[in-house]
């Protein structure tokens, strides 16, 4: 290993904004929502709408299906916003972050928590347009906004992450996401069916 590599290190304080966190959270949740949750829920809503056509006129059935889809979407958005609500409770503590990344370990601390783990314990990392995200836990990540780092620091961090984080991180994250989001998709689908039954009954009762 060259001397340059042995000495590779990024140690500095970062002043994160709420937007840094929110953008990262949304950026990670949206693909999961579209990949894991949306297909199942859309299929169930479509099936409900199709079945409603057997009883209701075409226009009313489509309207009822749209209403059910809207209600499910509202619940999904509310549930997903739980991450930002949680963030808002912790934001004061998490604004100022001290980062210390070296060849040996990834370390980060804020006002009320700190973490120092050797690289084999970092599960995965991702790079977005705005930030580097480091997963020391399958369901939580640390945000390192690029706007707060110099080009050289980003290069060093990227290289350390590429070389030190054990391979297979994306597969581990995908497996964890399926485990956590599968039941959520099922609940939304169940909700869609119950609402569809209710909306259908109401529409029929009103003579539609």
């Amino acid at each position: 290993m060259s001397a340059y590599r042995t000495e590779a290190r990024v140690a500095r304080a970062l002043e994160l904004s709420r937007q840094d966190y929110v953008a990262a959270i949304r950026g990670q949740l949206r693909p999961l929502l579209w990949r894991v949750v949306a297909p199942w829920v859309a299929a169930v809503v479509a099936l409900c709408t199709g079945l409603m056509m057997a009883r209701l006129t075409l226009g009313v059935a489509l309207g009822a299906g749209g209403l059910v889809a809207a209600l499910v979407a509202i619940v999904a958005v509310w549930a997903l916003s739980g991450a930002t609500r949680h963030l808002d409770r912790r934001l004061d503590d998490a604004r100022e972050v001290h980062l210390d990344v070296s060849e040996e370990a990834f370390a980060i601390r804020d006002r009320s928590a700190s973490l120092r783990v050797a690289w084999p314990l970092v599960i995965a990392w991702r790079e977005t347009q705005d930030a580097l995200l480091v997963y020391a836990d399958a369901s939580r990540f640390h945000v390192l906004p690029k706007r707060l780092l110099s080009r050289e620091e980003i290069t060093v961090l990227r290289r350390l992450l590429e070389e030190r984080v054990p391979p297979g991180g994306e597969a581990r994250l995908a497996a964890a996401a399926r485990g956590a989001w599968g039941p959520f998709a099922l609940y939304l689908a169940t909700l869609a069916v119950l609402w569809a039954a209710l909306v259908e009954a109401l529409a029929a009762l009103l003579g539609a």
Binding site: C48, T49, L51, M52, T190, V193, A197, V199
Partner: peptide, 15 residues
Amino acid sequence: PPGAWVLVVPVALLA
């Protein structure tokens, strides 16, 4: 007559 409500039974059983 069939309708969306027929899904309630299988979904409830699955859940």
